[in-house]
Structures are given as C-alpha cells and as structure tokens.
C-alpha cells in the first residue's frame, strides 16, 4: 500500500497581524506551517501506515522554505518528502499548480495506490487543486470525505458528507480522496521523530529536473490573472448602545433582523 499526501505550506495564521491602516494581513515575517487541513490528510495516512504498513510520500510545491515544513511531516512518520521548487513555479494558479504536481508524479515515477489531500488550504481557500490533479491523472475522486471506513484489497470505503446526506462510497484504487477535519485527529511530533527526521532528506526538484517547459508553469502557465485587489468597508462607525440606551439598540437590531429574515430559504 502506497499513499501519496499532497501538502501546502501556508502562513502561520495563529501569529498573523493585521495592518492597522489597510486592514490587510501582514504576510512578511510570518512563519510557514503546513496547511492545518493537510495535517488531517497526513494523519489518516499515518493511521493506515500503522494498520496496513502503508508507505507514505508527501508531495508539495512551494518556495524553498517549504523544506522545513516537509521535514516536519517526516518527523511525524512520512517515509519520503518531495518538494517542487523553482522561481518558474511562482505565481501558479490552481491549473498550473495541478499540472506541475501531476507532471512531477509522472516524471518522478511516484507510486501510489491512494492519494489524500485536505479539503482546501487556509490561505487561498479554493479547494480546487486536489480534484484538478486527480483528473489530470485520470484518478477516481471522492471529495468531502468525513470518515474513512475501511481499506480492502483493491478498494476503500469512505463516508462523504454533502448538503443533504451522508453517502458511503466504495472506490476502486488507485483514487484520490479530499478529506474534512473529522477524518482524523492529528498527532503531535515526538522528540525521537524529530531527531530521526534530521537524518532524512527532503528531495527537491526544479522545472528542469522534471523536464517541464516554462510556458506551462507559474504565472505564464496560469489561465487566470488577478487584475484588482481592493479593500472593502475599511472602518465602520460603530453606533454604541449601553446603559439606558441599550434597549433602543436592541430594538434597532430586531428591526434589522426582521428586514433580512424571510428572504432566506431553509
């Protein structure tokens, strides 16, 4: 059993600060961490390693600082970590990212029976790369997996949560699942794991190693362009109600709620 986990490094939002003038997030100087949702994907892989002696490869694309993040996945128990890093990859949208990752899997002959990824990354919040990656490799896909039920010889059974139902699917491997937090409770790294990871190497490949052409990569290879970034409603003038005015404020709130309720479907 070979498992491939897709991971992304994101800014550590626990320590994020907001620029008081623009109201935007200050990204500089933020530590990079593994996308918190990817930890649930990795944890599921680690559980399968314990129960089914699975071999785990973690694959990521990102700046060189991602190496530290991938090292942490080795400390947790991943067997192999691969980083795709090149200035030519910078500015990739979801198509270019998925393309680069899927090409790397082909070119590096990365073997897998099951690919696991998190629902989305906490920074971009698109949740598109897992599906696009899978389709580029013609892999079956189950999204929004809330529970891993079982692993049989050549198939898995998983529960998927959608708007109106819990669906249980049996999927022939190889396949990709994107998982919600409820699939696992991530473990913490141990000291011995950290020590052990120091002797392991994160494999790093650039565009040339993968034989990829710049036209398909990074910003150049990305179909989408950000044309405008703007702030909305920077500051609000808060009308404060307290003490004897409180009741007036409550009436005001009730008025607003009555105005907007009912326009909503259940």
């Amino acid at each position: 059993m070979k498992i491939l986990v897709l991971a992304k490094q994101v800014p550590d939002t626990d320590k994020v600060k907001i620029d008081p003038l623009t109201g935007t997030m200050i990204r500089e100087g933020l530590d990079a961490v593994i996308n918190p949702l990817d930890l649930h994907a990795l944890e599921l892989a680690l559980c399968l390693k314990e129960t089914h002696r699975a071999q785990i490869t973690v694959l990521s694309m990102g700046p060189m600082s991602t190496e530290m993040v991938l090292r942490d996945t080795l400390a947790l128990g991943a067997d192999r970590a691969i980083l795709l890093s090149d200035s030519a990859f910078a500015g990739s949208d979801t198509w270019a990212t998925s393309y680069t990752l899927s090409e790397a899997v082909k070119k590096l002959n990365i073997e897998y029976d099951l690919v696991i990824c998190g629902e989305k990354a906490t920074d971009g919040e698109t949740g598109q790369v897992g599906v696009e990656f899978a389709v580029l490799l013609n892999l079956p896909v189950i999204t929004y997996v809330s529970r891993f039920v079982s692993l049989q010889n050549d198939s898995i059974v998983v529960e998927r949560t959608v708007e109106d139902a819990y669906e249980t699917w049996k999927v022939r491997l190889p396949a990709l699942i994107s998982v919600l937090r409820s699939v696992s409770e991530p473990r913490l790294p141990t000291l011995s794991g950290k020590k052990m990871s120091l002797s392991k190497k994160v494999e790093i490949y650039n565009a040339r190693d993968l034989g990829l052409k710049n036209n398909d990569l990074g910003l150049t290879g990305s179909p989408t362009r950000v044309v405008k970034v703007y702030n909305t409603k920077l500051s609000r003038n808060c009308q404060l109600y307290m003490g004897k005015d409180l009741n007036q404020g409550i009436q005001e709130v009730v008025k607003i709620l009555k105005n907007y309720k009912g326009s909503v479907r259940r």
């Binding site: 897992g130 696009e132 896909v141």
Partner: peptide, 23 residues
C-alpha cells in the same frame, strides 16, 4: 459553490485546460 459545483468545476477546468475561480 456547493459540494457539487466545487467538485465538478475543477474537474471540468482540468479537462478543458482553463482557469477557474472559486467561491
């Protein structure tokens, strides 16, 4: 941007080699 749209659209975008903006 439901569980349906968020799954079928990236799959279509990958096949059609085009851009997709989420949400």
């Amino acid at each position: 941007a439901t569980t349906f749209g968020r799954t079928i659209m990236p799959a279509l975008a990958a096949r059609l080699r085009t851009g997709l903006t989420a949400d």
